[in-house]
Amino acid sequence: MSANQSDFEDQVSMTVDDDEISGYESDCGDSNSAVSDRFDVFTRNGMIRLEEENSAHDIIKTCFLSGMGFAGGDTNLVAIHKNVSSDVTRQARFESFKIFSKAVAQKCGGNANVKYAWYGGSKDELCEILVHGFSRCREPAPNEQSYGVGVHLISPVFAYDGALSSAVDERGLRHMLLCRVILGKMETVAPGSKQYHPSSKEMDTGVDNLQFPRRYVVWSAYMNSHIFPVYVVSFKAPSPNVVSGIQPSIQPRQANTSKPTSPWVTFPALMFTLAKFLPPPKMLLIVKSHNEFRAKRISRPQLIRKVRQIVGDNLLIQVIKAFRSKSLHPASAKRTV
Rank of each mutant, 00 (worst) to 15 (best):
G72N: 02
S199M: 11
V149D: 12
C137T: 06
S220E: 12
D10E: 12
P142T: 07
L77W: 01
D204F: 00
A255I: 10
N32S: 14
S36A: 15
A331Q: 14
I80R: 00
S325C: 09
Y222M: 05
N4C: 07
S239Y: 06
W219I: 03
C28Y: 05
R174D: 04
V104G: 01
F293C: 09
D27Q: 11
R335F: 10
F94D: 01
G67K: 00
Q195E: 15
S31Q: 06
V243K: 00
D74C: 03
Q302N: 13
S86E: 15
L77C: 03
V242T: 04
C137I: 02
L316N: 06
E125I: 10
G29Y: 01
F293T: 10
M223D: 01
M176E: 12
K306N: 15
F323G: 11
V319D: 01
G121E: 05
I304L: 13
K296P: 04
T43S: 15
V230M: 09
K123L: 14
C108F: 08
D124M: 09
M14S: 14
A255E: 13
Y222E: 06
R305K: 13
R180V: 02
D204Y: 00
Q211K: 12
K259E: 15
K236A: 09
R49M: 04
L178T: 03
A255H: 07
L173N: 08
I99R: 11
K194W: 15
C63S: 11
S6E: 09
G46E: 03
F42K: 00
G67Y: 00
W219K: 02
V311W: 00
P156W: 02
V218N: 03
S325L: 11
F212V: 05
G121F: 04
H329L: 14
F70H: 12
S332Q: 14
S200P: 04
F70P: 02
S96I: 09
A117W: 04
S96D: 14
S249I: 11
W264N: 15
K194H: 14
V131T: 08
G109K: 04
T89D: 14
Q195P: 03
R294A: 15
P229H: 03
L65H: 03
N224F: 09
M68W: 00
S249P: 01
R44L: 09
A112M: 05
L285C: 05
W264M: 14
P140D: 06
M68R: 00
A275W: 02
P252C: 07
G46Y: 01
E25Y: 06
S325R: 07
T205Y: 01
D37W: 06
T43Y: 07
S33I: 13
L270D: 06
R38G: 06
P213R: 00
N209R: 07
T62Q: 13
